[in-house]
């Protein structure tokens, strides 16, 4: 106990010394959830890239989907006396005590991509996307694209009950509200996977007169859209023309489809959460500027006008 305090004390001392010497030669601990998806892998890659660009020494800890590993990693970061901690929390609850420890040690914590249930004075800021907004951008694109033409839309939802599925559905529905030319005729879950996306799209096509009744597909993620595109092709229709395809995430594969004219639009959930986080941190360490409690990342819309092949080349090595 005593020795821990001593180390913490030393850490605080060290960080204060560092503060005075150089703002840029920082050490930042990053506790990542794991690598359960391509997006998560890309987030890790980009965080490391961003740190390198800014001359930050990044200490990376992969928690393999376990909160106890994350708490251990945070305690070890505190003991090492890092200057700041990036945390992508695997669950929302149970963070209070470790966040308090970080606060006592004067180490700012920035949440990436997901929120925690703790009081907001326990962390510096949270960087993330707004899921409702993402759905909204997708819906707005469809409204603009149609320009008043009648259109029956089918929806591939994410995993039933998950917050991305609920929020992306709500955002889309808000955007098309008041546009009576757009009707959501079928909505079913595709569990965020290609296989289910394809299977569910097949049933939509059968149920809606071989697809003749469908004018657009809205998928809660690109993977389901990629599966659905195959189903549409196998039904003898042209995705992107006979049925418009709009989805969310902007993973590399959807840009290939877009380049081939098979997908129309995607909304980016940027894996670059670390960039804004580091910016906020730099301002805070420089002159103590408090960032807002939530930094919303840009939900950028990509269409075929954005040179999809180029975006694909940029993205394909990020680990998606």
């Amino acid at each position: 106990m005593k020795s821990t305090k001593a180390i913490v004390g030393a850490g605080v001392l060290a960080s204060m010394l560092m503060l005075s010497s150089s703002v840029f030669a920082q050490t930042v601990g990053f506790s990542q959830i794991g690598s359960e998806s391509g997006w998560r892998a890309a987030e890790t890659t980009l965080t490391q890239q961003q740190a390198k660009e800014r001359g930050i020494d990044l200490k990376f800890a992969d928690a393999q989907q376990k909160q106890e590993n994350q708490i251990k990693a945070l305690r070890s970061f505190i003991a090492q006396g890092v200057d700041a901690i990036l945390l992508a929390p695997v669950v929302a609850t149970g963070w209070d005590s470790v966040l308090e420890e970080a606060k006592e040690a004067d180490i700012p914590v920035i949440l990436l991509d997901r929120m925690v249930d703790s009081s907001d004075d326990l962390y510096l800021t949270a960087v993330g996307s707004d899921l409702v907004h993402e759905g909204n951008v997708a819906g707005q694109w469809l409204v603009d694209e149609l320009g008043g033409k009648d259109c029956n839309v089918v929806e591939l939802q994410g995993t039933t009950g998950s917050s991305p599925a609920i929020d992306r559905k709500n955002g889309f529905e808000q955007a098309i509200k008041g546009h009576d030319n757009i009707k959501l005729i079928r909505s079913q879950t595709g569990d965020f996977t290609r296989t289910k996306g394809k299977e569910v799209m097949e049933s939509f096509l059968k149920a809606e007169d071989g697809g003749k009744n469908i004018c657009a597909l809205y998928a809660h993620n690109d993977d389901m859209a990629v599966g659905a595109i195959q189903a549409i092709k196998e039904a003898g229709l042209k995705p992107g023309e006979d049925i418009l395809v709009v989805s969310i995430d902007a993973v590399p594969d959807i840009f290939q489809a877009m380049a081939a004219g098979e997908a129309n639009a995607t909304v980016e959930l940027t894996p670059n959460m670390a960039g804004p986080a580091f910016d906020a941190l730099a301002a805070y360490t420089k002159d103590g500027t408090m960032p807002p409690k939530f930094i919303q990342t840009e939900s950028k819309l990509y269409t075929k006008d954005d040179d999809p092949m180029k975006v694909y080349e940029e993205k394909k090595d990020l680990g998606y």
């Binding site: 998806s37 965020f192 996977t193 296989t195 289910k196 394809k198 993977d223 599966g227 195959q230 594969d253």
Partner: peptide, 12 residues
């Protein structure tokens, strides 16, 4: 079927 191997979800 999906022209890709999805280690997380295939056969789940």
């Amino acid at each position: 079927d999906i022209r890709g191997a999805d280690a997380n979800n295939a056969g789940l």
